[in-house]
């Protein structure tokens, strides 16, 4: 029974990392900016979180710093994408390399250090007692909140406009580049929280490979949730489970080599991308019209 609870916690923790990363990327992409540097941002913010946690001991400060670290790297990406208007695939890769490099350099003295995971908050709902840490609660609130913001508020209309009809906003006098940069930085902060969740809860230690491709998986989740935060919530949980499948399969005593089974999250990500690219689903689907294209005013 206790083992079952541990499994559920593991899957929830793993899902929340993906959820936070995908939600952060989702609003960036809704504003038209594609950030392929997610893996580097997660790595750098994960390192920042654990470094602050070890040095200062305050988990809330650690979470905040992780968010700021994510926002900082995203600002670089937002600047290159919006103001210099360079290719976003390549500026994303630049941020990826910078993020991995920064976390490797500044994190080297914490390599292999373990910390106590975040203490969960106990929520009593009648007969149920759910214990979740602050980042899980944040992620679970953020998904419906972003859904409401995107579809029911004026801000959401503007964010969606940035990705679908930037010229319309420009005619109305909005500064497209500035607004997109703001959205990118806010999204970067949320991605940073995914990093904090990773090293403060899921894998409470630092190593350079701690992210293990979660940034890339999160990018695929955004595509396959059709840029809808509530669908992201669902898909993130499927992949949170698949990400822990290598560990679960060992506990369940499956007779498959652990290294081969470690390929499941990556292979299933490809399968997911293929399914969501099938013409049948594509017709149903949605993608921000101007995704990945810098806004250049036509004179």
């Amino acid at each position: 029974m206790d083992g079952g609870g541990e499994f559920i916690k593991l899957i929830i923790d793993s899902s929340t990392v993906l959820l936070l990363a995908s939600l952060g990327e989702l609003i960036k992409e809704r504003s038209g900016i594609l950030n392929l540097g997610l893996e580097g941002i997660i790595s750098f913010s994960a390192m920042s979180a654990i470094a602050v946690y070890i040095e200062v001991g305050n988990p809330y400060l650690a979470i905040l710093v992780a968010g700021v670290a994510g926002a900082f790297l995203s600002l670089i990406h937002g600047f290159i994408s919006n103001y210099i208007k360079a290719d976003q695939v390549l500026s994303g890769l630049a941020v990826l390399f910078i993020g991995i490099g920064l976390s490797g350099l500044l994190g080297s003295k914490y390599e292999g250090l373990k910390v106590d995971p975040l203490t969960p908050v106990r929520i009593v709902l009648g007969d149920f007692i759910i214990s979740m840490d602050i980042l899980t609660i944040t992620a679970y609130i953020l998904a419906p909140l972003l859904f409401i913001i995107l579809y029911k508020t004026r801000y959401g209309l503007i964010i969606r406009g940035l990705g679908d009809q930037p010229e319309g906003l420009d005619y109305l006098g909005y500064d497209v580049d500035k607004l997109r940069t703001i959205v990118v930085v806010v999204g970067g902060f949320i991605v940073g929280l995914a990093g904090a969740k990773l090293t403060l809860a899921l894998i409470p230690m630092w190593s350079i490979n701690v992210s293990g491709g979660r940034g890339w998986i999160a990018l695929a989740l955004v595509v396959s949730s059709l840029w809808n935060p509530m669908l992201t919530f669902l898909v993130a949980h499927v992949f949170g489970f698949l990400n822990q499948f290598p560990i679960l399969s060992q506990v369940m005593g499956l007779e498959v080599d652990s290294r081969l089974i470690s390929t499941t999250p990556y292979l299933s990500t490809i399968v997911l991308l293929v399914i969501f690219s099938l013409p049948m689903l594509k017709r149903l689907g949605y993608a921000p019209r101007e995704l990945g294209k810098p806004y250049i005013r036509r004179d």
Binding site: G40, A86, L90, S91, A94, L96, F97, I98, S103, S108
Partner: peptide, 24 residues
């Protein structure tokens, strides 16, 4: 004593400038 991963900083900053120059 500079960790090996440091080279990725070099590569990332270089890439950022290389892709930006055409647009500057």
């Amino acid at each position: 004593g500079v960790p090996f991963e440091g080279i990725y900083i070099f590569e990332g900053v270089l890439l950022a400038f290389i892709i930006s120059r055409r647009y500057i």
